[in-house]
């Protein structure tokens, strides 16, 4: 289990594409740059979607782990351009 602690948690488990990134987007919009967003998902598409989404928005995936069927991402929010 990760030692990283999050500022905001998005539990998108069981949700299917595109809802995990939509939930992450809504959360990230309300966060300050540099905060940590934790996203949990079970949709295997999230493995490629969350990193692509983060990169496109200037966020950074700082840690990623798989716990059972849960895909867990820790994302440091970037500065909006």
């Amino acid at each position: 289990m990760s030692e990283t602690t999050e500022d905001v948690l998005v539990d998108a488990r069981e949700l299917m594409c595109p809802m995990p990134v939509m939930a992450a987007t809504k959360a990230a919009r309300r966060m300050e740059p540099g905060q940590i967003l934790k996203v949990m998902a079970t949709d295997k598409g999230a493995l490629s979607d969350i990193p692509a989404w983060a990169e496109a928005n200037g966020h950074e995936v700082v840690e990623q782990e798989t716990v059972g069927t849960d895909l867990v991402f820790f994302i440091r929010t970037g500065t909006p351009d």
């Binding site: 594409c17 595109p18 990134v21 939509m22 992450a24 987007t25 692509a52 989404w53 496109a56 928005n57």
Partner: peptide
């Protein structure tokens, strides 16, 4: 609708 949402999510 899925593609529109995803496009909005990537900014």
């Amino acid at each position: 609708l899925i593609l529109a949402n995803a496009a909005a999510a990537v900014g």
